[in-house]
């Protein structure tokens, strides 16, 4: 990591229109939106693993897909290696697609069940014309399988996804991504559906190329313990917003936002000697349709005061690279 900015996101929004019944459509013409991602800004440095963490529904997946333009942003800018990719047309985007990849959460759905492992991994090589001959394609596929430790490769190339375990499937998904030699990967909860016992192995094969090829990652997770062990820096999201952002280590040790603090207290520790996890706040994450005025977290926050109900707090630097969006965090 050399501090160079690989990805810069500015005021990114992704709103989904809400489908409404005929009656409400007749009664008013206003459309409601799910503000899945609502004005977030952050930077990811070259070679870094940047965590996007938060409870389900807070907007992590939408943010990850929008950053890659797999979803069109509602507004905002995305700079990849200095270039504003929101302004690129389809053809220009296609060239970038190879270098900006995503690994999905569910290895059961992300692989075509009718394709063999060979075809699954060879497809992107062909689409992006990265090989001149079948022999070369075969060679790349075998190397990729070795890379993800599906060894010997010959045992796997003719299998179909249903003949693989969940972990093996996710390895194939990772291989399919790595053959393109991307420089930026969004990993959307890539291990959350797998057994704890095999997660570390998947992470290892996914992340080992980072050092060799200087790959940059956005690592999406709802599990803060994993975030702590994997990510360098990270952001906590709540209801479409980033509420806190800093180095992962600092975030865990010195959280400032009341929501981050509540999250940290709720994480169970695998050690009976530790203080038990507690839910210091009630309720659950609301769907961000018509969010409350002011701070989105204020209905659940014990520190909430008048200003929190009126003014939306901005994400502000409160210390060395420590950003918080809270009127009371200082």
């Amino acid at each position: 990591m050399n501090g160079e900015i690989e990805l810069k996101v500015e005021n990114l929004k992704k709103w989904f229109p809400v489908r409404r019944g005929i009656v409400s459509t007749l009664l008013s013409r206003k459309t409601d939106y799910v503000r899945a991602v609502d004005d977030i800004s952050f930077e990811v440095r070259k070679g870094e693993i940047f965590g996007l963490a938060g409870e389900s529904g807070c907007g992590k997946t939408t943010a990850g897909k929008t950053v890659l333009r797999l979803l069109e942003p509602t507004s905002g800018k995305i700079y990849f290696e200095g270039r504003d990719i929101t302004a690129l047309n389809k053809l220009e985007m296609k060239e970038l697609r190879r270098r900006m990849q995503i690994v999905y959460q569910d290895p059961y759905q992300s692989l075509n069940p009718r394709m063999t492992v060979f075809d699954i991994i060879a497809e992107p090589i062909q689409v992006h014309k990265m090989s001149d001959s079948l022999a070369e394609t075969e060679d790349i596929v075998h190397k990729a399988l070795e890379e993800v430790e599906l060894i010997p490769g010959e045992d796997f190339v003719y299998r179909f996804p249903h003949e693989l375990s969940g972990g093996q499937r996710q390895r194939v998904a990772v291989a399919r991504t790595l053959v393109l030699q991307p420089s930026f990967i969004v990993a959307d909860e890539p291990i959350s559906m797998l057994d704890v016992s095999i997660r570390a192995g998947i992470l290892k094969v996914m992340l080992k190329t980072r050092l060799a090829q200087d790959v940059t990652y956005i690592f999406i997770t709802h599990d803060l313990a994993y975030a702590r062990h994997i990510c360098h820096r990270g952001a906590i999201m709540y209801s479409g917003k980033i509420v806190e952002m800093t180095s992962m280590d600092h975030l865990v040790k010195h959280p400032l936002h009341p929501y981050t603090i509540a999250l940290m207290k709720a994480v169970p520790v695998p050690d009976p000697e530790y203080e038990k996890a507690r839910a210091v706040i009630g309720g659950e994450v609301p769907t961000p349709i018509n969010p409350p005025p002011g701070c989105r977290f204020h209905p659940r926050c014990s520190k909430a005061s008048d200003i929190c109900r009126k003014e939306e707090p901005e994400l502000t630097e409160v210390g060395n690279e420590h950003f918080v969006a809270c009127h009371h965090a200082l």
Binding site: L224, A266, P268, A277, R278, A279, G282
Partner: peptide, 9 residues
């Protein structure tokens, strides 16, 4: 989710 899990535990 983690906070709801803590409530349940």
């Amino acid at each position: 989710d983690v906070i709801v899990q803590a409530q349940t535990l």
